[in-house]
Simulated assay, not measured.
Amino acid sequence: MQLRNARVVLTGASGGIGMAIAEALCAAGARVLAVARRQEALAPLLKRYPDALCWVAADLTLPSDKRKVLAAAEEMGGVNLLINAAGVNHFAMLEQLEDSDINAMLAVNINAPICLTKLLLPLLKQADSAMVVNVGSTYGSIGYAGYASYCATKFALRGFSEALRRELADTRVSVLYVAPRATRTSMNSATAQALNDALKANVDDPQTVASAVIHAIVGDRRDLYLGWPERFFVRLNNLLPQLVDRGLRKQLPLIRRFSEKPENETLKP
């Protein structure tokens, strides 16, 4: 796909990976409709790219706000690229989560992208060439302790992407599934970041992920898994899950210890 003059709807545009993607798209000459609840974080980009970037305030868990996005996309002249990058996370063991935490992850991470994609598909199908990009996670392929509900949403998003790609196989709309590994964003709590440090996990910058996503879009890829050895572990988990079970079980005491730390407590590996 050519990005110059592409018409893009981008969710989760006000932070982390989403904001980095917004900047990369604008720099490549795309017209971007940034979907976010608040404008403040986007203000510098809106000032830098006044002709390329516009913003619509929307809470994607609300049907009325999803219709606002549709109206804004129609006003932009249609859309040929939808990037579902909005997401929420909560590091905790399942019994430590409130129902509201679980429901928020389900609503934002899976219900919102499915329903928004359905709403925008008629516009996407009108384009000569179009793409839906769903930003998932390595945790959409590997279940990980402390992230059971989050993993459930990303497993679902991966399945949705695969099924939608097959459903649209006889159309001009393609589907790209993106699976970043740990990324340095505000979505990660202090305890989650401390756990990453303790495990010596690889953590990417949002700009690194955004650059890889842009290249995958331009290259008309069907999926993108970032990071080594994370890509290897995804394949290993598919082939020999019990081997991965044994490896991850060794991390369980550390995961439990960090999940029990209060957010305001100084955390050390």
Rank of each mutant, 00 (worst) to 15 (best):
E230L: 03
L226V: 14
A169D: 10
R181S: 06
I217S: 02
V209A: 04
G227R: 01
A190G: 05
K200I: 13
V175F: 13
P229Y: 01
L199E: 11
R184C: 07
S211N: 06
A179L: 08
D204Q: 09
D204K: 03
D170M: 09
R181D: 06
L236E: 04
W228K: 11
Y225P: 00
S189C: 10
K200L: 10
K200D: 11
A216Y: 03
I217T: 12
A182I: 00
L199N: 04
A212I: 11
T171M: 07
N202L: 09
A210S: 05
V209D: 03
A201M: 14
W228G: 09
T208F: 04
L195K: 03
R181F: 02
L226H: 00
T208Q: 05
N196Q: 15
L176E: 01
D170G: 12
N196T: 14
D170L: 15
K200Q: 11
R184F: 10
P229H: 02
G227M: 05
R184T: 10
L195P: 04
R184Y: 11
L224P: 01
R222L: 11
L236V: 15
A201H: 08
G219S: 09
S211V: 12
V234F: 01
L239C: 12
V178E: 01
A216H: 05
A169L: 07
Q193T: 15
L176N: 02
N188C: 11
V173A: 14
I214H: 00
P180D: 06
A192L: 07
Y177V: 02
R231M: 03
A179F: 14
V209H: 02
D205V: 08
A212V: 12
L236I: 13
L176Y: 05
V178K: 00
A194N: 06
V209N: 00
L236W: 09
S186D: 15
S211A: 14
L176H: 05
V173R: 12
V175K: 14
A201I: 15
V218C: 09
V203F: 09
K200Y: 06
D223M: 13
Y177R: 03
I214P: 00
A210P: 12
S174T: 05
P229W: 01
H215V: 09
A216D: 08
R235Y: 10
W228P: 01
I214V: 13
E167T: 07
V209E: 02
D220I: 12
N238W: 10
T171D: 15
S211G: 10
V178W: 06
I214D: 02
P206L: 00
R221E: 12
L226G: 04
V173S: 14
A190K: 15
V203W: 08
S174Y: 03
H215F: 07
A194V: 11
I214E: 00
D223K: 08
D204H: 08
A212P: 03
I214Y: 01
